[in-house]
């Protein structure tokens, strides 16, 4: 079976600087979301137990091929990518990814991270599941494959659900499912030689809808705080009391 892992090319969040309340993303290196790497690791662990191939899919900038070398180094066998110049909104990403996935044979499992590293809107996996008419489970921290069934654990705020889901299915993993492995030198060097297909969006044969969401502004929040420097613990305790947060058991 083929295990598809959808990963998002994002700017390296750690390197984004805020200038005049606006995020400056120019020249920020592209990378892959951390939870996406957990999804890939989950796929690779399944591959090690079953006879399967791990195909990473993604949509990204003109650098997307380079960005995805990291995924191929970390255990992806093959990459299918779409180059898209400019902003993409969740509904559009979902259409592009669904079109990419439709072209892949015998897909058993489609894995996503629970949220992307930049926008964290957590929509795309669910949207892809709906477009493809597949069952889905989110916030998964355990996956075991048994024949044509996946046994998974969904971790919610107050409980865990052990579920059985018929394959093919869309699974969105949370970061605690595993620790993503560090790729070796050989794996990194071989990444560039693994098969990959890079398409332009118009080669997918699917109409990409107009963006459904409009961003009116995106600014660093104004966080005006008093920043009162207190010198001693007693000053601090007094300040707390003055604010109405007294101590005492």
């Amino acid at each position: 079976m083929n295990i598809v892992v959808a990963m998002k090319e994002i700017p390296d969040i750690q390197q984004i600087r805020i200038r005049n309340r606006k995020p400056v993303t120019d020249d920020v290196p592209r990378t892959l979301g951390n939870i996406d790497k957990n999804a890939l690791e989950a796929a690779v662990q399944i591959k090690e137990k079953t006879d399967s191939q791990v195909i990473v899919v993604g949509v990204g900038s003109s650098e997307v091929e380079d960005t995805f070398k990291e995924a191929l180094a970390a255990g992806g066998d093959e990459a299918r990518l779409v180059v898209w110049d400019g902003e993409l909104e969740s509904s559009q990403s979902a259409q592009l990814l669904a079109a990419l996935i439709t072209k892949i044979d015998s897909v058993g499992l489609i894995l996503f991270g629970e949220g992307s590293g930049d926008n964290y809107s957590s929509q795309v996996g669910s949207r892809v599941a709906q477009i493809l008419g597949l069952p889905q489970v989110g916030y998964v921290n355990r996956i075991e494959i048994e024949g044509s069934t996946a046994r998974v654990t969904r971790s919610l705020e107050d409980c865990e659900q052990d579920l059985e889901v018929a394959l093919p299915a869309v699974i969105m993993v949370s970061s605690d499912i595993n620790t993503a492995r560090i790729p070796s030198v050989t794996q990194i060097l071989k990444a560039g030689k693994k098969p990959k297909e890079v398409l332009a969006a118009n080669e997918l044969g699917v109409a990409i809808p107009a963006a459904q969401v409009e961003t009116i502004s995106n600014l660093a929040p104004e966080m005006e705080r008093r920043q009162i420097s207190v010198k001693t613990i007693s000053d601090l305790v007094k300040a707390l009391a003055d604010e109405g947060f007294g101590g005492g058991r």
């Binding site: 984004i16 926008n119 969401v213 409009e214 502004s217 929040p221």
Partner: peptide, 13 residues
Amino acid sequence: SLGGATLATQAIK
């Protein structure tokens, strides 16, 4: 948005 670095104002069309 952006991992919490920014606050986005968005409308659905």
